[in-house]
Design a protein around this nucleic acid. Sequence first.
DNA 1: CTCACAACTTGCGTGTCACGCACATAGTGC
DNA 2: GCACTATGTGCGTGACACGCAAGTTGTGAG
Lengths: 204, 204
Amino acid sequence: MNDEAMDLRARNSQATREAIGHAALRLAIEQGPNGLALVRVHDIATAAGVSPRTYNNYFSSRAEAICAFQADQSRRVGQALRSRPADEPLGRAVVAAVIELYTDPEPDKAGLRMIMSTPELEGEALRAFTMAEGPLAEAIAARTGTDPGRDLFPAVTAAAVAGAIRVAGRHWLEPGNTESFATTLRRALSCVLPVAPPEGPLGR
Amino acid sequence: MNDEAMDLRARNSQATREAIGHAALRLAIEQGPNGLALVRVHDIATAAGVSPRTYNNYFSSRAEAICAFQADQSRRVGQALRSRPADEPLGRAVVAAVIELYTDPEPDKAGLRMIMSTPELEGEALRAFTMAEGPLAEAIAARTGTDPGRDLFPAVTAAAVAGAIRVAGRHWLEPGNTESFATTLRRALSCVLPVAPPEGPLGR
DNA sequence: CTCACAACTTGCGTGTCACGCACATAGTGC
DNA sequence: GCACTATGTGCGTGACACGCAAGTTGTGAG
């Protein structure tokens, strides 16, 4: 998982992937939600220091490149939950994992706003957030000892959590909102998780 | 809302829109999830009896056309909830509304499978399901008397419900599953809603 | 009933894009 | 050091989204 754990090839791949994604997002932000069509593939590739053809080896659409950071973030959610102590109640563990993952650095507001308020990016942004569901569901199933093939609880809960994160992001971006993202996230998650306030051993 | 309530123009528009969407979905199903690239715009337009340029006036991508039926379905969810008796508890009302809307005719398995198991359609399919959230959130807010601007509950619950519907669909499509969609839906929704079982005034 | 206006459809032209293919280059393991 | 494989790149090919400017059809006022 660490950069050190991969060979040179993998690290180079990862680096160019991130370079392209970063360049794509930066250019998109520069043009704003309405000028997305002006962000040409050629520009992204040039800004990332690769050929347009190479850009296309990593991403098959601009939207995918621009939303790559969010997708990567989502992929880490399962891992974050697994790293919580096993005796922690599910609700508490999920909240803690999500908060930690999504507020380690406070998210980049411009980037989030870009991918969440640009119609042409909506589908890809949803994909990015939804990528959290699979790993999350597995982690929840592992923690609760349920069979994901029969019981819908893990998958539904994962979807609900992903949805809550999304709603929290949207709300946090609204103008005139001064809350920290952590607070918004907590409020949103408390709507779908049987989580007790700080005190109380409420399992499930 | 009824066909009769619109003038000729609107009804023609609606008709061609549905014709294009229907043709797109049908052709996509014929080619299967792996042959989506073989479904050309020209074919869709021809099958729907319009020019390729007209197809493009209604939809700006094949994915959008193929998923149109699901998007239309999602737009009705808010209305379905509003038509439930006002004294019904929220959970019961949502479940009843969703069940009624999504099982009036049992959904077309081939269509659902197409849009839910084709990677290139994933983003658009998510968009289609997510379209339920806005109206649903408003209807929930109206029913619970909460202010959607401050309270996250309506939006989060709407997202959770939409997610549950999606998960239910995925599970229902799994091979070897003989459950009715209504049953699967009920099971999924019960994971995110404080709803009593179908029979008996049994709390939780 | 007629006529002017608005909405819709259509053909054409343009710029962009995704991707297959073939070749050059760099990393890897024996 | 040497094959071998993965990756970067240039080029060519279809396909597509969309602007524009007719042509066509529905709508409402006089």
